[in-house]
């Protein structure tokens, strides 16, 4: 029931590093922000939409959204653009063919090395 809000409380001071990783993710997945991605909320509900932006708490803004099962979930029929609080997201399904996995791995190694030095 409770949102465990680790993100907002826990990372404020370290926001800088976080942004960079998210940026890497955005760069390398080429979410030129027109690709469809799927946000699975922690309630077994799927929303499909175009990823518009992500902030350091992983709050997400989606445009042109579609609910994958409107029969079961008519609750958002009139919503086309939405903001999702990062803390309620479990997964984001990404477009696999647009992910440069080599770039992701390199970026991760680089950041791991940077975090060591601090």
């Amino acid at each position: 029931m409770k949102i465990v809000d680790g993100m907002v409380e826990g990372t404020r001071g370290r926001g800088g590093r976080r942004i960079s990783w998210v940026k890497n993710v955005k760069d390398s997945t080429g979410m030129k922000i027109s690709e469809c991605c799927e946000i699975l909320l922690e309630r077994e509900r799927c929303i499909c939409g175009t990823l518009h932006s992500v902030d350091q708490f992983l709050n997400i803004k989606l445009t042109d959204i579609n609910v994958t099962d409107p029969e079961k979930y008519p609750h958002m029929l009139s919503v086309k653009t939405c903001f999702i609080r990062g803390s309620v997201v479990r997964y984001v399904q990404l477009p696999a063919d647009e992910c440069d996995t080599q770039l992701l791995q390199d970026a991760t190694r680089k950041e791991a090395a940077q975090n060591k030095q601090r």
């Binding site: 990372t11 370290r14 590093r17 976080r18 990783w21 890497n24 993710v25 922690e42 992983l58 990404l94 696999a96 992910c99 996995t101 992701l104 791995q105 970026a107 991760t108 950041e111 975090n115």
Partner: peptide
């Protein structure tokens, strides 16, 4: 959590264990 398990190829992670799996 919530009785889920994942098996996949690790492409990226950060200090929070946010991950990208293929």
């Amino acid at each position: 959590r919530t009785d889920r398990e994942l098996r996949g190829r690790l492409h990226a992670y950060d200090q929070h264990l946010n991950m990208i799996l293929g």
